[in-house]
Design a protein around this nucleic acid. Structure first.
Length: 286
DNA sequence: GCCAACGTTGGC
DNA sequence: GCCAACGTTGGC
């Protein structure tokens, strides 16, 4: 059974945002770089390596032909670089079983896949790259109306942008986008018009080291408010996720994390963990 | 390179 | 089941 659309639409298509890293970054000896240039060159790409439940759940809701925003993350100038669409609906992410792969997950079994991916088709570049800084500029503005030059967005477009997860949920790499936000982004990408805006106001004064982080508390408050809302209406980060709590016990999921954590803190009365679920799980293997 | 935010872990 | 601790994400 389908859960209803995360975006609130009950019948129409959903819209999505997926993040990729345009800059080289080496993980387990492999470069995980995937820029809009790479995407445009290959035209289609499996979206492998997602290892977050909420992101995965979103991917499992994606339907053939639904539209997505291609986002540049973890780079100098993050933002929306292209438009894409779903070419193939969710199927098991085989890279989880590939020990050579940067996102190898040794705990998942081929007969019980935990991670999924979709195939994405490149549609077009954003004629005007839509920088995160612009979306933040709009989101952080006290006004309900568009800034000068972007009147075409209308108040509705501004409201949609302000409601986007992108600005408040930085770590979510696959997220739903409302249709209104989709439209607003498309308008921005095709029209531009923010060259006159100072998207990076206030460089920190040398005296005040924390000047450029001064707005973070305000941001945090917004983030919290939204998180509360999600909780209230029931986030999908955990539902439909049978293994969510059980998996933790065996913990090699991301080995680096786990091994470090296992080492953490041995209180004086530390005796060697009484095996609990971990043992049960391990012995269930034949 | 720094560090706030946040998802996950795991002791209690 | 709560929540402190931890490591990672990702903007800056």
């Amino acid at each position: 059974m389908e859960t209803e659309a995360t975006t609130g639409a009950d019948t129409g298509p959903n819209f999505w945002l997926l993040k990729a890293e345009p800059d080289s970054r080496i993980v387990k000896g492999k470069d995980v770089k995937f820029s809009v240039d790479d995407f445009e060159a290959v035209k289609t790409s499996p979206w492998e390596g997602v290892r977050n439940y909420e992101a995965r759940n979103s991917m499992q809701k994606m339907k053939l032909g639904e539209k997505a925003l291609f986002y540049h993350s973890n780079c100098k100038n993050p933002g929306i670089a292209a438009f894409a669409e779903i070419l193939k609906e969710a199927y098991p992410d085989h890279t989880a079983w590939d020990s050579e792969h940067p996102y190898y997950d040794p705990k998942t079994k081929q007969d019980d896949p935990k991670w999924f991916m979709v195939d994405l088709k490149f549609v077009s570049r954003a004629q005007h790259f839509v920088p995160l800084a612009l979306l933040r500029f709009i989101t952080d503005s006290a006004s309900d109306s568009p800034p000068a030059g972007l009147e075409y967005l209308g108040d509705a477009g501004v409201a949609a942008i302000k409601a986007m997860d992108l600005t408040t949920r930085g770590r979510l790499s696959v997220q739903p986008v409302s249709e209104a936000a989709w439209t607003a982004i498309q308008q921005l990408a095709s029209t531009g018009g923010w060259d006159e805006l100072d998207l990076n106001p206030k460089k920190k004064s040398p005296a005040k080291k924390s000047a450029d982080t001064a707005d973070r508390p305000a941001r945090a408050a917004k983030t919290k408010a939204k998180a509360k809302k999600r909780k209230a209406k029931g986030s999908d980060s955990e539902d439909e996720d049978e293994d969510y709590q059980e998996e933790e016990s065996d913990a090699e999921v991301i080995s680096k994390t786990t091994s470090a954590r296992r080492k953490r803190k041995a209180p004086d009365d530390y005796q060697e963990l009484p095996p609990t679920r971990r043992r049960a799980k391990a012995s269930s293997q034949e």
